[in-house]
Design a protein around this nucleic acid. Structure first.
Length: 226
DNA sequence: TACTGATCATTC
DNA sequence: GAATGATCAGTA
């Protein structure tokens, strides 16, 4: 493994990204002495973790931005054959600790993570073998005021439901840009929570995800695609 | 295609 | 166990 230092400035981070654009996964992996998995089934986070290493992210799995001193979050973005995001994007775990005070949007993990994001799109068409898939050109992004306002509305609505014990009514359909879905190693993991009557119960941990519609809009706005 | 719930690896 | 990195796979 090469000695990888963390970039000191945004410009340095972006210039690293530009060198990666167009590279295949195979090239990228071998350059950094990593072995490409034969399948993503048992390596679902492979690309995200490889990019963290290559770009010198420092936060590991702490609930903080990947580039702590720059305040930048790294997100890989799998694209289908049409260049559209193939999946929703995981943001962070959702607080279901009903005893805790409802945190303000300004202090929420969602906002902190999405305040400044380095999107790294890459080919993820299932028809392309893993070693032939290429890295796209990265995009450093922040939400504009209108976007942040929608994200905030989504977040406040969903967070309120979590705190009211309305998990039974929580659907991935809710939210314009954000959605709530299970997020756990497996479905037998449960956390304490409350139901609508305020009674104790157990429920699966949830996480916030960004709809692919949302990430697609970001790509369109930046690359001016039709 | 989108929604949904389920699952895999790693680190601390 | 809970946070990170995510994608899989069934079904409507």
């Amino acid at each position: 493994m090469k000695k990888l230092t963390s970039p000191k400035t945004e410009a340095e981070l972006l210039s690293r990204c530009q060198k990666l654009a167009g590279m295949t996964w195979a090239t990228l992996a071998s350059t950094y002495n990593q072995t490409l998995p034969t399948s993503l089934i048992q390596a679902k986070g492979f690309m995200g973790q490889l990019m963290e290493q290559v770009l010198g992210a420092t936060a590991n799995n702490l609930p903080e931005p990947d580039f702590q001193h720059l305040g930048i979050e790294l997100k890989t973005l799998p694209l289908n054959a049409n260049g559209e995001p193939r999946e929703s994007t995981y943001v962070c775990t959702a607080p279901i600790s009903f005893n805790a005070e409802i945190e303000a949007w300004t202090n929420s993990r969602v906002r902190k993570k999405l305040a400044r994001v380095l999107w790294v799109p890459f080919e993820a068409d299932p028809k392309i073998p893993l070693n032939e898939r290429r890295i796209g050109s990265a995009l450093l992004w922040s939400p504009d005021p209108a976007t942040e306002s929608i994200l905030r509305q989504d977040w406040e609505e969903l967070t309120l439901m979590l705190h009211l014990g309305q998990t039974a009514n929580l659907s991935a359909k809710l939210g314009t840009y954000l959605q709530i879905r299970p997020k756990a190693a497996h479905s037998r993991i449960v956390n304490p929570g409350i139901n609508e009557q305020g009674e104790d119960m157990f429920q699966n941990p949830r996480g916030f995800y960004l709809r692919s519609l949302f990430t697609q809009k970001i790509l369109e706005a930046h690359y001016c695609k039709a």
